[in-house]
Design a binder for these strands. Structure first.
Length: 828
RNA sequence: GCCGGGGUGGCGGAAUUGGCAGACGCAGGCGACUCAAAAUCGCCCGGGAGUGAUCCCUUGCGGGUUCGAGUCCCGCCCUCGGCACCA
């Protein structure tokens, strides 16, 4: 064949086809095609943060896996839209820019250019006409628009919240920047401060975010993480009325305990209302507003000191579980609504203001933390639940949290938990002192950042009108170029130093007003980017209705499990809100989500400090993008990750060379029936495996098949190798194009080649190898015609010398026959 | 502590979901080609016993269910991720 003098030079082949794809617009969509796609498939991957270091191997792994999926769908006839973009705002970029002393507005375009070059080099099927850069005003204009929609819907609230504060750097720190209670940069102990910030009230959507998880096809580990994060718990809210100072502390008849006004009642959330008879004290978060009412004169000093200290502790170490319990008695009492006893009220930092009601009833006998606290401060620890074999008097050596019957609980004695929860709550509810309630762990989403590198929050503060939204027609509120963007001692964003920027007239009354100087969280940028991609042709709307209708929700989303919670939760939330406000027809953005695994190297995690980070560029230079892609997909199950070994690439690389030789040397003749059978078995396997992202085994099957095609140094028939070229195309797109052309075809393989059709008839073996066991131990194998009846199989098996020996002298009690697989003689 | 992955040859990893453990590949060994090396091709490659046919052992550990267990059940150990005083 004329082609035989060609030899395979990966980098030449790859450059040739990357140029061809570019020139022909193979992967690019026009606005028209986006609006009228016959069979749309939206293949999405998590967009990268464009770091100065360039793409790392984890990015390439994720993008390759997603690209393989997209290319596979395209070969199956789908119209695949595969966009990529850049998540370029945020503290990462800002800190890096500060470190190297380059303005992020100069730094980011450089990084984006480098990423673009690398992304093209690995041969992704990206539509470069529909990219997104979150720092582009044409993009964040719509991020601000989304903020305004939430604001107008009453889902954006401004409230005070604690932040980590470094008194030396004079700046707000994210939790990740607090290392062992100290600032990561200067080691100064971190304090907490309360400042006014913007929140999205995602908690209103908690139940829906939970319920919808049933209806979407996501990785199990991801939905589990979401469920845990939402943290629904069922229980009751119980009311403990304050004991007036002049009333005395003697117990009263519980039926005389009635509701008091809201200010003189402490509400608690508990998942164990059945144990209320064992509540011997209460604990409030130090910030709880009722503390002022409760505190007695002789305890005031101690309480104030404790509250000051709690306020000074940073948020991270405040929440350490391993430290011993601390707390202070307020001097005040509440009535236990079940027993009528006056119980002391304490404050302690193990009770968190932002969960439940910020107050708990302490049941030391049946809660580990309360037990620890009661032991520390010598408070009584009665038993109200008895396990099997225990009774009301059995002493407690620790908190008992297991199942059991109520004891020391009056008329409820003997009840099991579920019944007791209902009965006790109903009894308290009659007196207005309790009700069943659901509580969520999920918190409202704080989107304010006292930083520079983000989209300004589009609000103007006016003394007369309050927080006024910037009119939509005036968007974007452009982030000004500020040369000195270092956070300073003002405690607010560096933008608060730019008077000519923040001083504006109020849009409502025209009076002198002031822009919001905080910027928004990066997660807001990334919470909607998938809506923007197909609509980047439209600069007058965030997303076009028609385009969105045909492309969304996303068909497959692939990304890292590090975003299992925040990014995916926020995206779901924003989509739900936009749905409720009438902007979208669906409420779940990602129909299918798959989390990819992590790549480690030589058994160890990659890190800069270890110096074992894989730098992709030289590897691609040496072996080619196709070999690198193929190897990454081969080294382990995509959803689990794998161990990168430098020598490992040799196998996949050799496969590509052999495929090249075999395809170019192929002859025009009828396929050999045995080879054809193997081929069809492979088609069946690979087709299923690619659909399920089982890339490593799909590649193994392709290798095995090519080995069969080449067995004994034979020359392939064209029909034996051409389907292999098509099936390898998702992994090695450049080589596949080259071979497709060499095999005499016109145009791109991805447009023209049909995915090989699986013919079960051709895949079927006429004979099968059946294992023969005696008492479950393998003694022989026999080759039999497919679907041979049991008696034939048994006869053939008994004819085997080794089988006969093992059956000799024994009675066969039973014969287990699994057709086409196995025959087991059970002897006694 | 809780939640979620994992533990299989020298190594990365397969195993139709209860049916021949170790596919595919790396590394290694032997051989062919070569003046030589590289590349390429062929064969071998879990451990033990045996000249051999063959036999025994082996999927983190200990039990169990089953004709049959890497796979299912019970109890442990180790490891990697995530969450972590959430009442």
């Amino acid at each position: 064949m004329a082609n035989q003098d060609r030899s395979y030079h990966p980098s030449d082949v790859e450059r040739k086809w990357q140029r061809a794809w570019d020139e022909r617009g193979t992967n690019r969509f026009t606005r028209e095609r986006l609006r009228s796609s016959p069979d749309p498939f939206y293949n999405l991957m998590m967009f990268p943060y464009p770091s100065a270091e360039g793409l790392h191997v984890g990015n390439i792994y994720a993008f390759t896996g997603a690209d393989v999926h997209g290319r596979y769908q395209r070969l199956r006839g789908k119209d695949v839209f595969e966009p990529i973009g850049f998540d370029a705002f945020g503290i990462h970029s800002e800190n890096f820019a500060l470190k190297v002393g380059v303005h992020p507005m100069d730094l980011i375009p450089r990084n984006v250019a480098n990423f673009t070059r690398q992304l093209r080099r690995i041969g992704g099927m990206f539509d470069w006409d529909h990219t997104v850069d979150t720092t582009d005003p044409a993009y964040y204009r719509w991020t601000q628009w989304i903020f305004l929609q939430l604001f107008k819907a009453g889902l954006a609230e401004r409230k005070e919240a604690p932040v980590n504060w470094c008194p030396s750097c004079m700046t707000v720190l994210a939790n990740e920047q607090v290392i062992a209670g100290a600032c990561e940069r200067c080691d100064t102990p971190v304090e907490q401060r309360r400042i006014a910030q913007w929140f999205f009230t995602i908690t209103r959507y908690a139940q829906r975010l939970l319920d919808n998880l049933e209806r979407i096809d996501w990785s199990e580990s991801t939905t589990k993480a979401q469920r845990n994060w939402i943290g629904r718990s069922e229980g009751a809210e119980l009311a403990f009325p304050l004991v007036p100072r002049d009333e005395g502390h003697d117990p009263v008849d519980p039926l005389r305990v009635g509701p008091r006004d809201e200010a003189h009642t402490i509400r608690v959330f508990t998942t164990r209302p059945d144990t209320v008879f064992g509540a011997t004290f209460m604990v409030l978060a130090p910030e709880h507003p009722a503390v002022d009412l409760l505190v007695s004169d002789d305890q005031r000093e101690a309480v104030d000191a404790y509250r000051r200290q709690a306020a000074a502790t940073d948020l991270v170490s405040r929440q350490k579980t391993d430290k011993t319990k601390t707390g202070v008695f307020t001097g005040g009492y509440c009535r236990n609504p079940a027993t009528g006893a006056a119980i002391p009220v304490w404050i302690a930092d193990y009770v968190l203001m932002d969960y439940g009601t910020g107050a708990i009833m302490a049941v030391p006998g049946h809660d580990e933390r309360d037990f620890e606290f009661a032991t520390e401060f010598g408070l009584p620890i009665p038993r109200v639940v008895a396990a099997e074999g225990d009774d009301a008097e059995t002493p407690l050596t620790g908190a008992y949290t297991g199942p059991g019957r109520l004891v020391n609980s009056g008329r409820f004695d003997g009840m099991e938990k579920d019944e007791a929860v209902r009965a006790v709550t109903a009894w308290l509810a009659e007196r207005g002192l309790g009700d069943l309630r659901v509580n969520f762990r999920l918190h409202d989403w704080c989107i304010s950042r006292q930083r520079y590198w983000g989209p300004p929050i589009p609000i103007i503060h006016c003394d007369a009108c309050g927080a006024v939204p910037v009119p939509e027609s005036e968007l974007p509120v452009v982030l000004p170029r500020v040369e000195d963007f270092k956070p300073d001692d003002s405690g607010v964003s560096p933008l608060a130093r730019v008077e000519e920027w923040y001083e504006v007239p109020c849009p409502e009354c025209g009076a002198q007003a002031r822009r919001e100087t905080d910027v928004s969280d990066t997660f807001l940028d990334s919470g909607w980017y998938f809506l923007r991609y197909p609509s980047t042709d439209f600069d007058d709307r965030p997303f076009d209705t028609e385009v969105t209708r045909s492309w969304l929700p996303v068909d497959t989303y692939i990304g890292g499990n590090e975003h299992a919670v925040l990014h995916l939760m926020y995206s779901r939330f924003l989509t739900m809100v936009l749905h409720d406000l009438g902007h979208l027809e669906f409420e779940e953005p990602f129909a299918r989500f798959r989390a990819h695994g992590l790549i480690i190297r030589n058994g160890a995690k990659m890190s800069k400090s270890r110096g074992n980070v894989i730098v992709p560029d030289p590897i691609i230079e040496e072996f080619g993008a196709d070999a690198f892609r193929l190897y990454l997909m081969f080294l382990g199950p995509f959803e689990e990750g794998g161990d990168y070994r430098d020598e490992g690439i040799e196998g996949p690389r050799g496969f590509l060379y052999r495929l090249f030789d075999t395809a170019l040397g192929a002859e025009d003749r009828a396929p050999d029936p045995d080879v054809e059978r193997k081929l069809h078995q492979t088609i069946g396997q690979v087709t299923g495996q690619l659909a399920d992202l089982q890339y490593n085994t799909a590649i193994a099957a392709l290798m095995e098949c090519l080995n069969t095609v080449r067995a004994g140094g034979r020359t392939a028939a064209r029909g034996e190798v051409e389907p292999l070229v098509v099936m390898a195309a998702p992994f090695a797109p450049h080589l596949a194009e080259e071979l497709w052309e060499a095999l005499g075809h016109e145009g791109s393989l991805f447009d023209a080649a049909p995915w090989p059709a699986f013919d079960p008839e051709k895949a079927r073996e006429s004979t099968v190898e059946v294992a023969v066991q005696v008492n479950g131990k393998l003694r022989a194998t026999v080759r039999l015609p497919r679907d041979a009846p049991a008696p034939d199989a048994e006869a053939a098996a008994r004819a085997q010398e080794n089988v006969r020996r093992h059956l000799d002298g024994a009675t066969v009690r039973k014969v287990v026959h699994v057709p086409n697989r196995l025959l087991n003689f059970v002897v006694g």
